[in-house]
Design a protein around this nucleic acid. Structure first.
Lengths: 146, 146
DNA sequence: AATCGTAGTAATCAATTAAGTTACAGGAAG
DNA sequence: CTTCCTGTAACTTAATTGATTACTACGATT
């Protein structure tokens, strides 16, 4: 499978809005940072808006975080963007007349869900504020090297 | 992305080999249970063999588990099949001249790894023996209903 | 109000990946 | 030596992602 970068790009987008709050936050400018197209950015913002993480104004470059960064967890971004897709997928079509094929979904679904829940619990512990803080720390390291 | 069912199918395959040990374990028979093609089954078995989980004999329908089921964790199967692919992918191509674009990978990679490690820790706790046991329990429930 | 720049979104395209299929070389066993 | 099977490569098909194009509608500025 081609791995989706939507989740990663959404975090990028939100961090950008915070760090570059005093610039013109057009979808073009944000797209230039992510190195994608403005339409992709607007699509992601649409999802984030529907999830209540972002407010936008049609016609105006004015995206704004709907909550303090510290109250937006990576998990809430994940749900906003990929909430309907499991990290691990059970093969939905197996032979029901076989002992294995007829029961594997029920069994695996449960173990997969537990693994995903464990990952989600970790994502819930990190907020976008942590991400932004770390980005600034990394940037400071780079600056110090020069 | 179309979500891969290789991991799920591999667990299926190994459970099948155990539960139907006294039947002819041709790739055709296993494929019929997974409802896929024999070639797909042989491809999965090839990976499992390379990972030391399975032994096979060219020309003969004789796949056998290389270790007791209780010593094969879901995680080891996951590594055998999808070990090189992360559950969450960081966008590898962002603008390095931007504070966000230039540091997001470093920062996110770490959080993503922690989430994946949490999921893997959960997968490591479950063995194929657990899966087989559960499959048989589910089957017994079905039988009791009839 | 006219215009310009922007958001929102649908529709289409291109690239990638997964799984299915075909084909065939080679081993094992009767 | 014939038959059945595994192991693999090559190709096809289907699904998904992200990029692109095109358009409508909104808002600010003049």
């Amino acid at each position: 499978m081609r791995v989706s970068t939507r989740f990663s790009d959404s975090i990028h987008l939100l961090a950008y809005i915070k760090i570059y709050a005093d610039t013109r936050l057009t979808s073009d400018a944000i797209a230039a940072s992510i190195e994608t197209s403005p339409v992709v950015v607007r699509r992601l913002m649409s999802k984030l808006r529907q999830a209540g993480l972002l407010t936008t104004t049609p016609g105006t470059a004015q995206p704004a975080l709907a909550k303090p960064l510290s109250q937006i967890s990576l998990l809430s971004v994940f749900y906003a963007i990929e909430g309907d897709k499991p990290l691990l997928a059970v093969d939905p079509k197996t032979n029901p007349d076989c002992i294995v094929g007829g029961n594997i979904q029920t069994v695996l679904k449960q173990y997969y869900q537990e693994a995903q829940t464990a990952a989600e619990a970790r994502l819930a512990k990190t907020s976008l504020q942590d991400v932004v803080d770390n980005i600034l720390v990394e940037q400071a390291k780079k600056d110090a090297r020069q």
